[in-house]
Design a protein around this nucleic acid. Sequence first.
DNA 1: GCCGTTTTCGGCCCGACTGTTTTCAGTCG
Length: 557
Amino acid sequence: MSVNVEVSEVLLGIADLLELKSERFKPEAYRRAARSILGAGEDLRTLRQNDLLGAIPGVGEAIRRKIEEYLDSGKVEYYERLKQEIPPGVLALMRIPGVGPKTASRFYRELGIDSPAALLDAIGHDRLSGVAGFGPRKIQNLRRDLEKASGTVARRLPLRTAWAIAQGVVRAIVAAALVDQVEIAGSLRRRRESVGDIDILATSGSPGAAIETFAKLPGVRQIVVKGETKCTVILDPGIQVDLRVVPPESFGAALQYFTGSKDHNVRLRTWARERGLKINEYGVLRGEVRVAGATEEEVYRALDLPWIPPEIRENQGELDGAALGRVPSLVNLSDLRGELHQHLLGSDGELSEMAAGATRQGLQYVGVVLPGPHEGTDWTRRVRRLRSEWPAKGGPAAPRLLVGYEAPLGEIEAMRELPPGVDYLVGLPGDGTPRPPAPAPTERVPFFPWFLGHLRFATDPSEPIGERASPWIEWGRNVGVALEVTPDGPMDGLDSGSIRRAVDAGTSLVLSAGSKAVGDFADLELSIGLARRGWTHADRILNAAPDPASGRPTNAR
DNA sequence: GCCGTTTTCGGCCCGACTGTTTTCAGTCG
Ligand SMILES: Nc1nc2c(ncn2[C@H]2C[C@H](O)[C@@H](COP(=O)(O)OP(=O)(O)OP(=O)(O)O)O2)c(=O)[nH]1
Ligand SMILES: [Mg+2]
Ligand SMILES: [Mg+2]
């Protein structure tokens, strides 16, 4: 587990314990610091070396000291002391839906209940009925959730999985024809590598009917909450989906609210308040008068801010930049000229499908990557056939074919010339490869265009990707090789923190579609999103260039 | 505990939904 995750968990634990002690403001301060550390995208040890721990938003003197204590000793004394005061099972009570610090501490203090199992037992023995504030509905809901939740852990979903499910839900909502505008919001719109739930915003002339329809969608296992403007359901695989419905004139304000992040929202709302304005999901208000709300641009403009791309709304400096009129210019889907990591499956007509898919996506070239061996007549035949069967005669719009050769990194590194018919190389470091080879002396490095592909720095989601990616990023810059970004996450390819470090270091990137079907380039949108989260400009991206295989070094030195 | 587009001290975002209440606390987004 990365040290950032470990420290975040300690801080969240402190927050829970303080909240059980009815402490005000401190719990939120610890939670904000924890979120900020996760979103920082830089290893805490590195930040500490550069004396930058205090630069993390929400980390001040006291939390900085606790982080240092953890880095030095693996423990935080304050946390250990707090834990002595409250049994661990009481914290587990707070994970039950609808049970917060107030309820959990009442269970413990008034009824001696110190774990979810003890709660279920108490309900079984009817010890809750008659206790003030616990009516039959609450008891019934608790029983249901306790029986259901035993053994299950709340898990976050990989971006790509959530994206596919969300598309399906959106299609179903649109098909029901009760909504006008629909947009995916929340962490999915911000393209976080993993998301806790799926958030969807809609406008509708008949919000009540829209919500009823949503709650009855096929695959809905449980309706968690359902009201006039919002509905939360659990889908069959145990995935939570939040739908929020607002009137059209509030769409922009609601999208801004529902996209988050929470810390971005809170900061924005605080700025508004300081200017005598109020921001909520219905608009920006001066007194009773709404001065903005239909579009996000309006909302930000009401605070004299430029629109901020969703992918960087993490309160990690984007607001301070925007206040100075500075918003980074990020790579767009339309900047991509091609895709460099397609494989052949051997199916009939796959090349025309691939070319057609590329054309639909507006791509000018497609790189088909062949595995070895690259010698002998067999290889020559494969390449010749590929080139001759590529539908080049499809008119001026037809994408060009590039041919790549992929092999284990050691083989690629040792190559002194490109195999016959090949335009570029793809080096495969292998799963979990901890360190790159020593950089070759400059004069021995031929300037072939190439990149590192199929990156898998972790073989388990708990492993620290960012930490393992760092030496490769540096190596990539020094050797002049790009690193691949795929939409798969969070274990494959680069995470956005690593991407941001790569951008800062001057390492180039290749954005791939991770195609699961021939000619399917749609998930390039997710790779773009990850690159945007890493504050990437188009000039850092190899396949945003008109001719990525021109033979130039892939990086400016 | 953190922080500064009038504060280095005094504030700390704002609203929906539920269950229980006879007017709102708690939880969640
Ligand atoms: N103003 C404000 N907005 C919030 C708050 N909590 C959540 N939001 C907004 C911003 C979030 O991005 C959005 C959706 O909430 P979620 O809990 O689903 O969070 P998010 O999607 O960002 O992350 P997730 O991956 O779901 O954990 O609602 C809050 O306390 N205040
Ligand atoms: Mg969410
Ligand atoms: Mg949500």
